[in-house]
Simulated assay, not measured.
Amino acid sequence: MRVDFADVAVALGGTRIVHGATFSVEPGQVAGLVGPNGSGKSTLLRSLYRVVRPEAGTVGIGGKDVWQLPPRVVARQVAVMTQETTADFDLDVLDVVLLGRLPHHRGFGGDSALDLELADRALARVGATGLAGRLFAGLSGGEKQRVLLARALVQDSRVLVLDEPTNHLDVSFQLELMRIIGELGLTTLAALHDLNLAAAHCDVVAVMNQGRIITHGPPQEVLTPELIGEVFGVRAHRLSHPATGRPLIAFSPRPSPAPHDPAPEQHAKEHAP
C-alpha cells in the first residue's frame, strides 16, 4: 500500500513543527526518516497514524486521506511500534500481543482461534515465543521491543510505522529487528537516529531538518558527506560496506576554529605612528 504525504504542515501547542512535507513511499518499500533531534520525524509519522491532525496538506494511504477514513479502518491498515515505554502494562505478554487484534474485533467478544494463531506466529517471528506467559512489566527493554513488534505484526496491516524503534537496544537486536522488518514485505516507515542502519536497511530515506523534508531518495544518493555535514554538523566519510556494498558512513568531529589571536593587531596599534 502506497503512503503519501502531500504538503503536510503540523503544529503542536500553536508552534509549527512540520512545514510543507511532501514524500511518498511505494508499496513494499522500507523508508527511513532521518534528521537531528527535534527535526519533526516523529510528529510527521504521528500524522499518519492519526495522533496529530495536520493543519494543512493531506496524508494518504492507498490514495485515501487517513483523516477522512474511520479510525478503525486506519487501525486495520496502519500498525505502529513506538519506542520502548516506561509505562508498564499490567498484562502478560500474550495479552499485550493480542491487543493488536482489537481493530479487527466487533463488540466485546473473546479472542478467536485465528487471533491466538496469529499471536503465536508473531511471537515466533520475533524470537519471543518463550516470553508468552511472562508479565510484560518484568521484561528487559529489548524483550519489550520484541513484544511490541509482535503486537504490531499481529495487527495484520499493510503499513508499518516504527517510531525510533532501535533506541536503547544492543547492536545485535538492532540488526535483527531491521532484518525482520525487511523480510515482511510491508510498506514501512521508520524514524531512525542511526544513519548506518538507514543506509543498510532502507530502500529510500527522507532527510528532515527544522521541520522540513530537505531531500529524499535512495540512501546511496541522499546520504552524501556534504548533506550529512550540513544537517548534522559532523564530518562524514562514506565508505562501502565490505559485506553488502551498501553505504557505510564514518564520522569525525569538525575541527574547531582556530582561536582569534589579537596580538598581531594589538602590536600594530602600539607601533602605529
Rank of each mutant, 00 (worst) to 15 (best):
F108P: 10
S140C: 07
G133I: 01
G107C: 01
D115G: 11
A87H: 13
L116Y: 01
L114K: 11
E117L: 10
G127E: 05
D65T: 06
P71I: 03
R76G: 14
M81C: 15
V80D: 11
G127F: 03
A124F: 01
I61C: 09
V80G: 08
R134D: 11
G62S: 09
L118A: 15
R72E: 15
R134Q: 14
L123K: 05
G138C: 00
V73G: 09
V97A: 00
A124V: 06
D120C: 09
A56H: 10
P71Q: 03
D88I: 01
A137T: 03
G63C: 00
M81R: 13
L69H: 08
P103R: 01
Q83K: 08
A128W: 03
S140Y: 08
L98D: 09
H105K: 15
E84Q: 12
V80A: 08
L131E: 11
D115N: 08
D65S: 09
G107I: 03
P70Y: 02
G60N: 14
D92W: 05
L91R: 05
A56S: 15
A56E: 14
G107S: 02
S140D: 10
D120K: 10
A119G: 12
H104E: 10
W67H: 09
L94M: 15
A128L: 04
A113M: 08
F136L: 11
A75C: 08
G62D: 05
Q83D: 12
G63P: 12
V78G: 11
Q68V: 07
D65Q: 01
E55R: 07
L116K: 14
G138I: 12
V126T: 03
P54Y: 02
D65E: 06
A87L: 15
L114M: 11
E55Y: 00
G130N: 10
W67A: 00
V97C: 04
V96I: 04
H104C: 09
L131K: 07
A128K: 02
G138N: 12
G138Q: 12
G133P: 01
G109F: 03
L131S: 06
G141I: 09
A79C: 11
G127T: 02
G127M: 04
D65R: 00
T82R: 15
G62H: 05
P70H: 06
D111L: 03
Q68R: 15
L123Y: 04
F108L: 15
